[in-house]
């Protein structure tokens, strides 16, 4: 039987696990559809933010006064590196099925993700305490907290999912179902990094420039 090498987004199992590869097409494509609808959610929040950050500042502080670009840059690096680490976790799963190396890469991914969420919470703390920039202050800040908060919530739920997958790997090993779940989590994680590109560009960099 000849299978197409690539049936779905992300790492494909062709070559090392033909059976899993075939089973993956349907569930990964289904998850891909969910991710696209999730992107629509983010797009609406971006649109709201785009309108509010220009017209909704009211009496409150503007973007250039409250944003810390250094923190945004570090957050970008953390999320990018964690996306990269997840890629290597999946490759360790695909080619070696070695629990220890997969779990080690997942741990690295998770720590980078936790550091990212921690830095964002710290940003919020600084904004609220040093600049009195609470969500109630202006439409701009409501939209800002809603957009970045939704993203941070996605990352946090990804971290919970990651912890559950680590337990499943430890308990069940590389069962076909466990593999397919980890592959879906990888798509989720990479997609959140793509959304973050939009946030650091259109929220932080645009906000400070204009």
């Amino acid at each position: 039987m000849s299978l197409s090498e690539r049936l779905h987004p992300g790492i494909n199992l062709a070559g090392t696990d033909p059976e899993g590869h075939e089973a993956a097409e349907e569930v990964l494509f289904g998850f891909w559809i969910f991710l696209m609808s999730d992107l629509v959610l983010f797009a609406v929040l971006f649109a709201t933010y785009a309108a509010m950050s220009v017209q909704g500042i009211a009496e409150g502080p503007g973007p250039a006064q409250v944003f810390d670009l250094t923190a945004a840059f570090l957050e970008t690096l953390l999320l990018l590196l964690s996306s990269f680490a997840f890629g290597f976790a999946l490759l360790a799963m695909k080619y070696r099925e070695n629990r220890r190396s997969v779990l080690a890469w997942l741990l690295a991914t998770g720590i980078l993700g936790i550091a990212f969420v921690g830095m964002e919470l710290h940003d919020y703390y600084v904004m609220v305490t040093a600049h009195a920039a609470t969500p109630q202050t202006s439409g701009f800040l409501s939209a800002y907290y809603l957009l970045t908060g939704t993203h941070a919530l996605h990352v946090s739920s990804g971290l919970v999912w990651m912890a559950i997958m680590a337990i499943q790997i430890a308990v069940f090993g590389f069962d076909k179902r466990v593999k397919l779940r980890l592959m879906r989590l990888a798509l989720f994680w990479h997609m959140l990094d793509v959304v973050w590109i939009g946030i650091f560009t259109f929220v932080y960099l645009f906000g400070v420039t204009s």
Partner: peptide, 9 residues
């Protein structure tokens, strides 16, 4: 990101 992390081509 789509090309190298999500392998869309």
């Amino acid at each position: 990101h789509l090309r190298f992390f999500l392998h869309i081509d």
